[in-house]
């Protein structure tokens, strides 16, 4: 197999109304599997959040990462995703999240580092048109001179690549620090005294409304790679809803690494 070009695929956009955190987790699994099975074209899904959430990585310890009492107090849902990486603190108006479900051929022969950079080159370009000089900071951060913008994660499922990214549009740092336990070891490596300084949100860097940034991102993807309007199929939504209930909404999965 040789590496395919973005233009070799007929990309479809899914941008649905706000959905629950557990349903978002389930949709990533279902849509990656649909693309792997050839039942869905390669897809860009832009997320809208219906609730605040902490999304922890597949292998993170729930109690090491999250203060569950604080999460309950702030009505923040805690979910575990299927990809590795670190915890994300989500508030609906403060976050820009998207997933790309692609044939694995798109990253054929690339190192981890190259694969992450390739999947987000369109975002780096979109941010550039908004005056932000952004780049990939290995292993999996999207960053600019002003600070970290977002984090990415990838997983392979069958013949499909799942690549998803959460970017900070705005951030309530005080609330985040109440809910997330930030490990000392990690901070020492970043050379900064507090998690607060690590993230510099897009709102401050652009002065634009969140919707304008999302629109520019979608336009940039369409111009570079082609992008047709699409929607979730009923069958996909039903399977995701069942999975959200049975797996992603369950304590067994969320606390699988206690």
């Amino acid at each position: 197999m040789s590496r395919s070009d973005w233009r070799a695929h007929a990309w479809q956009l899914v941008h649905a109304a706000p959905q629950r955190p557990a349903l978002h987790m389930a949709l990533d699994e279902v849509l990656a599997d649909e693309v792997a099975a050839g039942r869905r074209p390669p897809t860009l899904r832009v997320w809208e959040w219906a609730a605040s959430a902490v999304v922890i990585g597949r292998f993170q310890s729930l109690r090491n990462e999250v203060d569950m009492e604080a999460a309950r107090r702030h009505r923040i849902q805690v979910v575990r995703r299927i990809t590795g990486g670190g915890a994300m603190f989500i508030e609906p108006g403060n976050t820009i999240t998207y997933s790309i479900y692609a044939p694995l051929s798109l990253v054929e022969g690339l190192s981890f580092q190259e694969a992450y950079a390739r999947m987000d080159a369109w975002v780096v370009e979109a941010l550039g048109t908004l005056g932000i000089r952004a780049w990939y900071q290995p292993l999996n951060d999207l960053t600019s001179e002003a600070g970290k913008i977002g984090g990415a994660a990838q997983a392979h499922r069958g013949g499909a690549l799942l690549h998803h990214v959460t970017m900070a549009y705005d951030i309530d740092t005080a609330k985040m620090l109440q809910v997330l336990r930030i490990g000392r070891e990690k901070l020492s490596d970043k050379g900064t005294p507090s998690a607060a300084k690590r993230v510099d949100p897009l709102r401050r860097q652009t002065g634009l409304p969140r919707e304008a940034i999302v629109a520019r991102m979608i336009d940039t993807f369409r111009r570079r790679h082609g992008l047709a309007e699409g929607a979730l199929r009923d069958e996909e939504l039903q399977r995701a809803a069942a999975l959200a209930q049975a797996k992603f909404g369950s304590a067994a999965w969320t606390a699988e690494v206690p």
């Binding site: 990585g57 597949r58 292998f59 310890s61 590795g84 990486g85 670190g86 915890a87 997983a155 690494v257």
Partner: peptide, 8 residues
Amino acid sequence: QLSGDFFL
């Protein structure tokens, strides 16, 4: 119990 923010 292993845990962390790695990819595996």
